[in-house]
């Protein structure tokens, strides 16, 4: 049969780099895991895809009422509802994919203990499965934009939106992989994650603009958040506010560092998952 199959050598753990060629050869399994995650998610819910649309809409309405109307938050020219919706859209993707990816290794522990495949497939596919939610919410957002009193710069949109999605993905993969490895080791980390995500929601300029913060030092700290740049980029085509290059650079660096650290930590512990799980 496959005489050309390369020799496999099983040795004590030493390499620190990922075997991307192997990962590529398992692309079908990657696809199946993603497909399963999506399928199971919508099979188990009555509201299904409807819930995915409802959630950002409801949140947008609530925040528009409290922050936009009652507190009168100034969003620099963008209608508050559009401002909140755009932030919630990306944040929801980020927080669900980080949470799901974080739990994914523990959930799939029975499989990990019984069969070999590159473990990275598991958190990656659960991040990818969350993209479906993002796509649904995005369509809703675009429809909403037609009715909202806002002018859109199409040229900027073509450039900045893909960048915003890419940055969210980078941040989610980095943090998700790190958490998934950590949770296999320390199961109670789950509670820490949901709390941290709630805090992070308010530390990210989702429902208020960063310009509302007077202390410049605090702005730099908040920019350490990978989602800061993603959400700011996403709003560029809708807004006339200038970008702060320093804050954006800090945030992009934070995304890349989180990706490298997350993957590195995952790789370091990957080999022993079956012993720990």
């Amino acid at each position: 049969m496959s005489q050309s199959h390369p020799d496999t050598v099983i040795e004590p753990a030493s390499r620190l780099s990922f075997n991307f060629r192997e990962l590529w050869s398992y692309r079908e399994l990657f696809y199946f895991f993603t497909w399963r995650d999506i399928k199971v998610k919508y099979k188990q819910t009555v509201l299904g895809i409807f819930w995915v649309m409802l959630q950002p809409l409801l949140m947008m309405i609530i925040f528009t009422f409290f922050f936009g109307r009652m507190l009168g938050v100034n969003t620099g020219g963008i209608p508050y509802s559009v401002f909140a919706f755009s932030g919630l859209l990306l944040w929801n993707f980020f927080s669900t994919s980080v949470t799901n990816a974080g739990n994914s290794m523990v959930l799939n522990a029975p499989i990990i203990k019984k069969i070999y495949f590159p473990r990275l497939i598991i958190p990656l596919s659960s991040v990818l499965a969350s993209l479906v939610d993002l796509a649904v919410a995005l369509i809703l957002f675009i429809i909403y934009l037609f009715f909202a009193p806002v002018s859109i710069n199409i040229l900027e949109l073509v450039f900045f939106w893909p960048l915003a999605f890419a940055l969210s993905l980078v941040g989610a993969v980095g943090l998700g992989c790190w958490l998934s490895a950590l949770m296999i080791k320390y199961r109670d980390f789950r509670f820490v994650v949901s709390f941290v995500m709630q805090v992070a929601f308010f530390l990210t300029p989702i429902v208020y603009p960063v310009s509302r913060i007077d202390l410049s030092f605090l702005r730099y700290v908040l920019a350490l958040n990978p989602m800061y740049a993603a959400i700011t980029f996403f709003r560029v085509p809708l807004s006339t506010d200038p970008l702060d290059p320093v804050l954006i650079t800090i945030s992009i660096c934070a995304s890349i560092v989180s990706l490298l650290l997350g993957l590195g930590y995952f790789r370091k512990t990957e080999l022993f998952f079956a012993d720990l799980a």
Partner: peptide, 28 residues
Amino acid sequence: ILSRITPPTTGRITVRGRIASLLEVGTG
């Protein structure tokens, strides 16, 4: 170890072919 689920502490295994392991039925 043979199924590559966990690495050995020392030693080396060379596999010359496609390997599949059934440590359980219905995995996944």
